[in-house]
């Protein structure tokens, strides 16, 4: 057993936020209250050098707290992965460095993990936000659902939990934490949600800047592209390509008919270009889908694409079976 540590709480910080020091204090007192089977890991992204120096001073000599500092700015997912690499607990809770939830959100996450989940996403109840903000949040989660097929209430919530076995399978993709549950769900892990109380100190209005909103929308697009098209590339590409090619061939047929039977000139008609363009680009779209399928067929078809949660057997099968087999052969 890894030093008797049961729960690792991972405070990850990839953006400088004013309230991180208060959150740190509340988490320190949380793990001290719970005793030595809890540990706290604080991970700071590379550009937060000043914060690292301050925290180093604050945390010196505390045996329950580990401080990790990345060497360069590498984003949210890399920050979380760095923390997971040193986490020793069987259950790991990632805690956001901005005021979304308080420490009373940790027990519901742990309960959901104990109930059999591999990965838990918290969703806040009793939020104080404005109607506009709630609408924006609902639209964002709806967009995720529509594009990736995975439904979550509150993907913007930063408190997640996972088993240590899952932490080793965390995909190194993207730089946003919200990618993790979606990708893990696609891998066959059991991803569930847990209701957590929203922070009492959450500021009333925290809106994303237009730039952040744009980045996030691009993230979602990239993710849905990855999730949708990597498994069965020929379905979308083949459909689009075949339709383009067929329209082009139809146009070609019309043009040839008009040239031969109606004696219209062909050479000076831009319609001819359109027809050729449709056929050639349609074929190339199909080809790209075929290349994708070829890649999967030749390289990934042996991948085990299911994950067994548990097994139950009736009474011993093999003994009864071998007895019967002996009877029949003997």
């Amino acid at each position: 057993m890894s030093g008797g540590v049961r729960v690792s709480i991972l405070l990850f910080c990839s953006q400088s936020a004013g309230s991180v020091a208060e959150i740190l204090e509340s988490l320190i007192s949380y793990v001290h209250d719970r005793g030595p089977d809890h540990e706290l890991i604080v991970v700071l992204d590379g550009h937060l050098v000043g914060l690292y120096a301050r925290f180093q001073e604050r945390l010196a000599g505390d045996g329950q707290v580990t401080l990790v500092g990345l060497h360069a700015q590498q984003g949210q997912v890399a920050t979380i992965r760095a923390g997971l690499a040193v986490a020793r607990g069987q259950a790991i809770v990632t805690f956001p460095s901005y005021p979304q939830v308080d420490t009373d959100a940790i027990p519901p996450i742990l309960e959901a993990l104990a109930a059999g989940a591999d990965y838990v996403v918290g969703y806040r109840v009793g939020r104080q936000g404005s109607p506009f903000k709630r609408l924006a949040s609902r639209m964002f989660n709806g967009l995720i659902h529509a594009t990736t097929g995975v439904a979550f209430h509150d993907l913007a919530c930063g408190i997640h939990g996972m088993r240590s076995s899952v932490s080793r399978a965390i995909p190194n993709y993207g730089d946003n934490q919200l990618f993790l549950p979606i990708l893990l769900a696609r891998e066959g892990f059991r991803v569930t949600e847990a209701a957590v109380p929203a922070s009492r100190s959450e500021p009333g209005l925290h809106l994303f800047s237009p730039a952040a909103l744009g980045r996030r929308a691009l993230d979602v697009l990239a993710l849905s592209y990855l999730v949708r098209f990597t498994q069965k590339p020929l379905r979308p590409f083949g459909a689009v390509g075949v339709v383009l090619t067929l329209i082009g061939l139809l146009l070609c047929a019309v043009l040839v008919y008009q040239r031969i039977f109606l004696h219209q000139s062909l050479a000076d008609r831009p319609m001819l270009l359109l027809a050729l363009l449709l056929v050639t680009s349609g074929i190339q779209v199909v080809i790209l889908g075929f290349l994708g399928e070829l890649l999967i067929y030749l390289h990934f078809r042996d991948q085990v694409n299911y994950r067994v949660q548990e097994e139950v057997r009736g009474e011993v099968i093999s003994d009864a079976a071998s007895n019967e087999a002996e009877l029949r052969h003997g």
Partner: peptide, 28 residues
């Protein structure tokens, strides 16, 4: 399935961690 297992000695029930579709289920 878990409830019926003791009464069916031939049963081997496998629970997948999440819904994967028919092909992965058959592979399992």
């Amino acid at each position: 399935l878990a409830r019926l297992a003791p009464a069916h000695p031939r049963l081997h029930a496998i629970r997948l961690a999440s819904n994967r579709g028919q092909t992965p289920a058959l592979m399992a």
